[in-house]
Computed example of a mutant assay.
Amino acid sequence: FDPLEADYEALAAQLEDGWEAATPSDTGGAEIEIPVRYGGADGPDLSSLAKHVGLSVDEVVKRHTEAEYVVFFLGFQPGFAYMGGLDPALHTP
């Protein structure tokens, strides 16, 4: 869009309407299951993470594997996905 010609409020309203109207079936997305290994050489910081969030290692793994993650968009690095859906209890700085 031409920022000198476009009506910002109208564009913002159109984007919000489109976002609200979108459903998972509109995205053409697919559910993909990715195998994950936890702990040891594959996750040497797992114990530190569990301690930081105040959960057991087993509970961290349980919460991480039970979540359904949504890819919002792919980043600037090839294959880097910006995702949402992580259990807030696992959020870390």
Score class of each variant (00 low, 15 high):
E20I: 11
V71P: 02
H64C: 11
K51P: 11
D17W: 04
L55S: 02
V60A: 01
E33R: 12
S25H: 09
P3D: 11
L55P: 02
P24T: 04
Q14T: 14
Q77D: 10
H64D: 02
D45L: 12
I34P: 01
P24W: 00
F72Y: 05
E16H: 14
D45T: 15
A30D: 08
A41Q: 13
G18D: 01
D58R: 13
D7Y: 03
E9V: 14
A10S: 15
V70L: 05
P24F: 01
H52Q: 15
P3H: 09
L49Y: 13
G43F: 04
P44A: 07
A21P: 00
R63W: 05
G79N: 00
S56G: 15
D58M: 06
A30W: 05
L46T: 08
V57F: 06
S47W: 07
G79C: 08
K51A: 15
S48Y: 02
G54L: 10
G39K: 09
K62V: 01
I32P: 11
E5C: 07
Y69M: 05
E68N: 02
L46N: 01
D42N: 09
I32V: 15
D17F: 06
V61D: 03
G84I: 08
K51F: 14
S25D: 09
L49N: 05
Q77G: 09
P78G: 14
F72H: 10
E66S: 07
G84R: 14
D7C: 11
A13W: 03
F72W: 14
E66Y: 01
G54D: 01
P35I: 07
A12H: 06
G29M: 00
G54T: 11
E20G: 04
G40P: 09
I32S: 10
E66W: 10
P44M: 01
G18R: 09
P44D: 08
L49S: 08
M83N: 05
A67H: 04
A50E: 01
E33T: 12
D7R: 06
D45K: 15
W19C: 06
I34S: 06
V61N: 13
E16T: 05
E59Y: 02
P3L: 11
G84V: 14
L49V: 09
Q77A: 13
A6E: 05
T23V: 04
G40M: 06
T23L: 04
A12R: 15
P24Q: 04
L46K: 12
A30G: 03
V70S: 03
A21D: 02
S56D: 10
L74Q: 11
M83P: 01
T23D: 09
A30T: 05
A50S: 08
A41T: 15
G79P: 07
K62L: 06
P3V: 13
P44K: 12
L74M: 12
K51I: 09
H64M: 09
E68V: 13
R37E: 15
K62T: 06
P3R: 07
T23M: 04
P78L: 06
T23R: 05
K51C: 13
L15F: 09
P44S: 12
L74F: 15
S48L: 12
D17E: 13
F80P: 14
E16G: 02
G18L: 07
E59K: 08
D7N: 15
G79S: 10
Y8T: 04
A21Y: 01
K62H: 08
